[in-house]
């Protein structure tokens, strides 16, 4: 993860005087699975649309793989994207449309056909290759659009709400695909499902009203000042708290909203802290019913935008 593959500097986009992006700065490291989180209207889709060349920025610049003001012509085959709300042509079989996309990326005719079929197969839709897009369900269309984004093995892929509106099984399948693909290239994902992003991504940026409030590795954001949250059968008693507080790896141990919350001491490795805490609890004969590490991304997100969290959540 050495070089930066996406760099936005002071990016501004206005719609009729309203600023959807208001001086956004962002750097996406190569090979990362990067989460872009934000409330509705924060500017996530606008940012993706500028990167894809669909919208023209009002100010600032964005550089993708070394190209400023990116356009398909310059980045074809190197940048893939799942755009939000984009519809395939009605009346033209999905395979034909994917073949056309692959041909535009530079594949020859037979290569394009093979790549399109392979992409459809990877999302389990080889059997609908000849179907008109209008005959496909929302979930199927999402998967077709997703395989379109990964068609031809691009270097960087942007996924705008890849699991929105999908049933749990399809969403799980999409997450598995993204995880599999993400290990091989840079993937930037926007989603409102923060638990999903925390589970998938290596990096995260919090976008609020067109500006990045916080950005970094998931480790830094979600595990900063690492917390553990424990639940037990029965109440947390004073001897347990004292025993935990006496551990060198523990900075504090308190009961918050009926749960035991433990903050680790600075400089202690997460695994060492977890092992020490669990050993202590087992020695006391109080194995936890629930043991959750870290702070949820949702908590960090709400903290960053000044909202309210109903707890610490966790991963």
């Amino acid at each position: 993860m050495s070089s930066v593959v996406v760099k936005a500097s002071g990016l501004v986009k206005s719609f009729n005087g309203m600023r959807a992006l208001d001086g956004m700065d962002l750097e996406v490291p190569q090979g990362s699975l990067y989460a872009l989180v934000g409330a509705n209207g924060a500017g996530k889709t606008t940012f993706f649309s500028i990167v894809g060349g669909f919208l023209r920025p009002t100010g600032g610049s964005v550089e993708v793989l070394g190209h400023t003001a990116p356009e398909g012509g310059a980045l074809r085959g190197r940048l893939g994207m799942l755009p939000q709300d984009a519809a395939f042509l009605a009346g033209v079989p999905v395979l034909e449309q994917l073949v056309f996309c692959a041909r535009l990326q530079g594949f020859d005719a037979s290569g394009a056909h093979a790549a399109a079929l392979q992409a459809l197969d990877s999302v389990g839709l080889a059997d609908v290759a000849q179907r008109n897009p209008r005959a496909l369900s929302h979930g199927m269309l999402k998967r077709v659009a997703l395989c379109q984004a990964f068609l031809g093995n691009p270097e960087i892929v942007f996924l705008d709400e890849p699991t929105a509106g999908l049933d749990p099984e399809t969403a799980r399948r999409v997450r598995a695909l993204v995880r599999e693909w993400g290990g091989k290239r840079t993937v930037v994902i926007s989603s409102h499902n923060l638990a999903e992003l925390q589970d998938l991504c290596t990096h995260v940026a919090i976008l609020h009203r067109g500006r990045i409030l916080s950005a970094g590795s998931m480790e830094d954001i979600a595990f900063a000042g690492c917390h553990y949250r424990c639940a037990f059968d029965g109440a947390v008693d004073e001897p347990m708290l004292l025993a935990l507080r006496s551990l060198a790896e523990v900075a504090s141990a308190d009961v918050v909203a009926g749960e035991l919350q433990i903050r680790t001491a600075a400089g202690v490795a997460r695994n060492d802290a977890a092992a020490a805490i669990l050993r202590c609890l087992l020695a006391l004969g109080r194995p936890p019913r629930k043991f959750v590490e870290g702070v949820s991304l949702e908590h960090r997100f709400l903290e960053a935008i000044g909202g309210q969290s109903d707890g610490l959540g966790g991963s």
């Binding site: 894809g52 356009e71 398909g72 980045l75 074809r76 449309q97 996309c101 535009l104």
Partner: peptide, 8 residues
Amino acid sequence: RFLLLRTD
């Protein structure tokens, strides 16, 4: 948008 990713 699917095409603009691939052509000018």
